[in-house]
Amino acid sequence: MQIFVKTLTGKTITLEVEPSDTIENVKAKIQDKEGIPPDQQRLIFNGKQLEDGRTLSDYNIQKDSTLHLVLR
């Protein structure tokens, strides 16, 4: 499925993911596309910070959902 990740600069990254993917996996995909190390990434969905060990389906993230990427 496709999800979107919006950065603070207003750029939107499109990712191909599975609901069973962990947040860690998603961060690795963002690193592949953008070169941002996962330990600098914080992903936010519906105002909640997403934890590495959880999956997209844990957070009820579905296709065409938009996550927000904050760098630390």
Rank of each mutant, 00 (worst) to 15 (best):
L69K: 00
V5Y: 03
G47R: 04
Q62P: 05
E51N: 03
G35R: 10
T55P: 03
I30P: 00
P19Y: 04
D39H: 07
K6P: 01
I23G: 05
D39S: 11
I61Q: 01
R42G: 04
L43W: 01
K63W: 13
D32F: 06
Q49M: 12
K63L: 12
Q62D: 09
G47S: 11
N25D: 04
G53Q: 10
I13A: 03
I44H: 12
Q31T: 10
V5R: 00
L69E: 01
K48D: 14
K29L: 09
E34S: 10
T7L: 07
S57G: 07
D39K: 15
P37G: 14
E24G: 07
R72I: 13
E34I: 15
E16I: 12
F4G: 04
T66G: 10
G53A: 06
N25W: 09
E24D: 03
K29I: 12
Q49W: 02
R54G: 10
E24R: 09
I44G: 14
L50Q: 01
I36G: 03
G10K: 04
T12Y: 07
T14R: 12
P19I: 09
M1Y: 03
K48Q: 09
F45K: 03
T22V: 12
E18F: 11
Q62S: 09
D32L: 11
Q49T: 05
K33W: 10
V26L: 13
L69M: 04
K33P: 04
K29F: 11
I36F: 13
D64I: 04
L67K: 01
G10M: 05
D21P: 01
G35P: 03
E18W: 13
K29P: 00
D39V: 15
L69P: 00
F45R: 08
M1F: 13
D52E: 14
L43V: 03
D64E: 08
D52I: 06
Q2V: 10
G10N: 08
K6Y: 09
K6D: 13
T7K: 08
G47H: 14
L56E: 00
K63T: 04
D52T: 13
N25A: 06
K27Q: 10
A28W: 07
L71P: 03
I44M: 13
T9I: 14
F4L: 02
S20H: 07
T14K: 07
D39N: 07
L15I: 08
Q31D: 10
R72H: 11
V17W: 02
D21V: 09
L71R: 11
G53S: 06
I13W: 10
D64A: 13
Q2T: 12
L43D: 00
L69H: 01
T14E: 07
P19G: 12
D32W: 12
T66H: 15
V70Q: 03
S20E: 08
E18Y: 14
K11E: 08
S57K: 11
S20Q: 06
G53M: 10
Q2F: 12
G35N: 03
V5S: 01
T14V: 13
E16T: 12
G10S: 04
S65R: 02
L56T: 07
H68A: 04
P19F: 12
K33N: 13
K27D: 00
K48M: 12
V17Q: 10
V70M: 04
P19K: 04
E51G: 04
T12S: 09
T14W: 13
Q41L: 14
S57D: 11
L50G: 01
D39L: 07
S20T: 11
D32R: 05
I13T: 15
E16K: 12
T22N: 12
S57P: 08
I30D: 00
A28R: 07
D32Y: 04
N25I: 10
V5H: 00
